[in-house]
Design a protein around this nucleic acid. Structure first.
Lengths: 210, 210
DNA sequence: TCTGTATTGTACCAATCGGTACATAATTTG
DNA sequence: CAAATTATGTACCGATTGGTACAATACAGA
């Protein structure tokens, strides 16, 4: 019997509470990202998403008619755009190769909070979310490696491509290790090690002048 | 109304099919592991587990009264035991340090199928399964790093602890990269690179004598 | 062969899943 | 101010979730 007659039990009658925060769709991806990061694609239920955003299903499906999959896609696009702007593009454009690599390491360290924050794209790559967004995931890592290789080559390094791949892998592995050990040390040491190996001493902005 | 009277619709009457494979609880962890690897902890539903093992819920809960959590714990214990026997212990015991490290790399390469197979413990470390098995996950990586550091130190390497941590991280990151790029190349190159860096040329069993 | 124990499949359960329908409320547009 | 549009909360849906109950079966030792 479709169309029972729907009688809302508790309509919002007469109380406009807390002076309405005007929510914009563009504000959501970071909030959604935290949920996907913490719980993975499958584990990120609409209940958790609703709680994290403070939005009911109505609003969520208004912003993302495609449901969870569209939310995850929006988050991936958002993360991708952030890295494109703050990591990949600088790597490609900064003419001083050492400075390019060094500021990449700074950006990455800040973004991942010394390994306390998981890489969403990396987590999706291990998860079966991989099968839902293969191109996004592939592109993110491929562009990261390529941009870093370009910078290293510009700096005159031999085997720039291999070095770049190793560096990106090391960062991802360091996140895994830091999470597993519950200790940011592994991540910090990985970043320091990369700085030592990839950046000329006089350009290093943070630490580790061994 | 509890206790309706349960009348099984299709009991197995009169047909003992396929001459009964005698299933032992000890055979299950590898099958379960593949499900958890492919789908993560949340995504590994009892339906998938039942399909992968060919066992109904009755049998599964007979073997693992604690349900999914106990299954995952058994799988983690199984993986841990495998690494303990085939990776950690040899690293600690083999007196020839180069040989120890080299055969670790061989074992790891074989186990992860050149990065096509995900590291279950690593995947759980990123997932919120981390919160369920923190000690198992921490112990696995801590013992891996410690055993490798021991072997490297035995071989007279400086900074053995840091080198070991880097190597384990690199392996984990290489798995992420290989999965993301859909290409075993990243993993193969990582193993080769480690061999070059950590094993004396004359001991290298596989390749990469640059 | 009889008897107790271990295994097994299936029915069943409450809770939750992702998703839809839709009345109400707020906002924009004219 | 009125009409159209957008945003929002809630009821509801079928499917699936992890888990339990239990009768039927296979198997062990006597």
């Amino acid at each position: 019997m479709p169309g029972h007659r729907i009688i809302p039990a508790f309509p919002n009658w007469g109380f406009d509470f807390m002076s309405r925060k005007p929510v914009d769709r563009a504000d959501l991806p970071p909030l959604l990202a935290e949920v996907f990061r913490k719980h993975g694609y499958e584990g990120a239920s609409l209940a958790l998403i609703s709680e994290a955003t403070g939005l009911g299903k109505g609003s969520l499906y208004n912003f993302f008619p495609g449901g969870k999959e569209e939310m995850a896609a929006a988050v991936l696009a958002d993360v991708d755009a952030w890295f494109e702007e703050h990591v990949f593009a600088p790597l490609r454009q900064e003419s001083d190769a050492d400075k390019a690599v060094s500021s990449m390491l700074d950006a990455v360290d800040a973004y991942f909070h010394s390994g306390r924050r998981v890489c969403l794209v990396g987590a999706f790559a291990l998860d079966d979310a991989r099968s839902r967004f293969p191109e996004r995931i592939r592109g993110y890592f491929a562009r990261w490696v390529a941009a870093l290789a370009e910078a290293l080559a510009r700096g005159g390094r031999k085997d720039a491509a291999i070095l770049a791949e190793e560096a990106v892998g090391l960062i991802q592995g360091a996140i895994v290790l830091s999470q597993a050990l519950g200790d940011t040390g592994a991540f910090d040491r990985a970043i320091d090690g990369l700085r030592r190996r990839l950046v000329a001493p006089q350009t290093r902005s943070r630490s580790a002048q061994a």
